[in-house]
Design a protein around this nucleic acid. Structure first.
Lengths: 225, 225
DNA sequence: GTTTGTTTTGACAAATCAAATAAGATTAAT
DNA sequence: ATTAATCTTATTTGATTTGTCAAAACAAAC
C-alpha cells in the first residue's frame, strides 16, 4: 500500500510543524500550506487523500477554502477535517453544511488527531468499495478475507506470506528484487535482511506448490504469467 | 424525495409557532402537539420522520412520551430530539438512556435546530439501510430485539457483544482489524484499547461456540462464510 | 570438473500475537 | 444502597509467525 498524502493548511507555523512531525511518524506523506490560497493550489497540484483545514486564517478562511474545493470537480471528493479554535457553534454548523467530514478542536491531542484522520480515511475508502480479489491461474487471492482459494481448497496463509503473494500476484509477470519486495510488503523504514524474502517465498511454495512464484537468479522473484 | 414530516411537541404555543415557521421554511412538513397525550396520538396517526419533544411539560413529560414511543413497535424507530430548558445533566442522561437521538437546549438557535435535525435524519437514513434481522448459518441475529436465536435456543448478549457480532456478521467473510471494529461498534471518537475487542470476541464465543468468529492472526477478526 | 555466485533448505532464535485470566471500573438492576 | 452485570484494562501464557544463520544444493561460467 503506497503512502497516503495529507495536506495541512494552517497559518501557525509551529502547529504546522507539530502536525507534520506526528503524521510523518504515522507513515503519512505530508504537504503544508500557510494560507488558504496556497492550500487550494497544493490541493489542485497534488490531489491529497485528505485535507486538514484551519478555520481561522487571515484572508481566505477555512470555510471558504472548503467551499472552493467542493465546487471543483477534481477536489470535491477529498475529505476535509476542520481545525477550530474552540467549539464554536456557528462555524461548526456552517462547516458541516459545507461538507466537512469531521471537526477537531484545538488544542489538538495527537492521538485523537491521528485516530480521527484514520477514521475518516477508512470511512471514505469503504465507500469506494473496491473488490480486492485477484484471480490468477487457478488461484483466487482475496484480500478482503485474507484467504487464498484454489477450487474449493482454502489456504490460510499467515499475514506476511499472504501479503507477499498478493503483491507479487498483483504485479504478475514482473520481476521484483528483494529490496523492493521488502519496501512494498514490509514497509519503508523497516530493516530486515533481504534473505528473509527467500524464506517467505519458500513457505508459500510449501503450501501452494512451486508453480506460482519463479526465481530469477541474481534479480529477484516473479509471479508466473 | 417527498417531504419529511416532523412532529413538534411543546406546551408553549409561541415556541411551537416559531419552530413551525422555521421548519416549513426548510421544506419540512410540520405537525404540532401541545402536550404529551396529543403527541403520542399524533405520532400513532401520522408516523412522522422525527419528533421534537419538550422535556418539561405538565402532566405527561417528554421522557414519558419517549418511553411510550419506544415501547410501541410501530413508533420505536422514530428518532427523537429533546428540547430542554437548560443543560440539565440529569435529565439529559436519563433521556439518552431512553433512546433520545439528540438534545437541544433552549433558547433555541434556529440554525442549530435545523442542522441537528438534518444530522439526525441523515444518520437515521444510513441505519435504515441495515437489515434488522440477519440470518447467517444457523443464527438469527435480531437487531430489533437485541437477541440471537439458534433453533429455539435464545441468547441474550449484552450490548457490545451483540453489536460486535452483528457488525461482523453483516460483513460476513470479510476481515476487519481491531481499530475498524472499534470505530464501527464503539464509535469514531471513543478511545479504548484495541485488545478490548478480543475480550468481547471471547465472550461471544463462550456463549455461541467458537465456530462463528474466526481469528486472522496479525490482521483481525472475520465472521465465517 | 572446478569455481563462483546464488538460492534453497533445515534448524533455530526472536518477536509477535491472541487466548485466557483476573481484577478494576463503570453501569444497570434490585 | 447494595448487588449484579457489563465493560475495560492489565498480565500471563502458549502458540504461531517472523527473522536469522549457515550448510547444502544448484546453476552458470570458466
Amino acid at each position: 500500500m503506497s503512502k497516503q498524502t495529507i495536506l495541512v493548511v494552517d497559518d501557525e507555523q509551529d502547529l504546522l510543524d507539530l502536525i507534520e512531525y506526528n503524521l510523518k511518524k504515522e507513515g503519512f506523506k505530508v504537504l503544508k500550506a500557510e494560507n488558504g490560497e496556497q492550500g487550494i493550489m497544493a490541493a489542485r497540484e497534488h490531489k491529497p487523500n485528505l485535507v486538514l483545514l484551519d478555520i481561522m486564517m487571515p484572508k481566505m478562511g477555512g470555510i471558504e477554502v472548503c467551499d472552493q474545493m467542493r465546487s471543483d470537480p477534481e477536489l470535491k471528493h477529498i475529505p476535509i477535517i476542520f481545525l477550530t479554535a474552540r467549539s464554536d457553534e456557528r462555524t461548526e454548523i456552517e462547516g458541516l453544511d459545507k461538507g466537512a467530514d469531521d471537526f477537531i478542536t484545538k488544542p489538538i491531542s495527537t492521538t485523537k488527531l491521528i485516530s480521527r484522520i484514520k477514521a475518516v480515511l477508512r470511512r471514505f475508502d469503504e465507500n469506494q468499495e473496491q473488490v480486492q480479489v485477484l484471480e490468477v491461474h487457478d488461484l483466487k487471492i482475496d484480500k478482503d478475507r485474507y484467504i487464498v482459494l484454489r477450487g474449493n481448497e482454502e489456504f490460510q496463509l499467515p499475514r506476511k506470506e499472504f501479503e507477499l503473494l498478493y503483491y507479487l500476484a498483483s504485479k504478475r509477470g514482473k520481476v521484483r528484487d528483494r529490496q523492493t519486495l521488502l519496501n512494498k510488503v514490509w514497509g519503508d523504514n523497516i530493516y530486515v535482511v533481504d534473505r528473509t524474502v527467500d524464506v517467505h517465498v519458500r513457505k508459500i511454495r510449501e503450501k501452494l506448490g512451486d508453480h506460482y512464484i519463479e526465481t530469477v537468479k541474481g534479480v529477484g522473484y516473479r509471479f508466473k504469467e
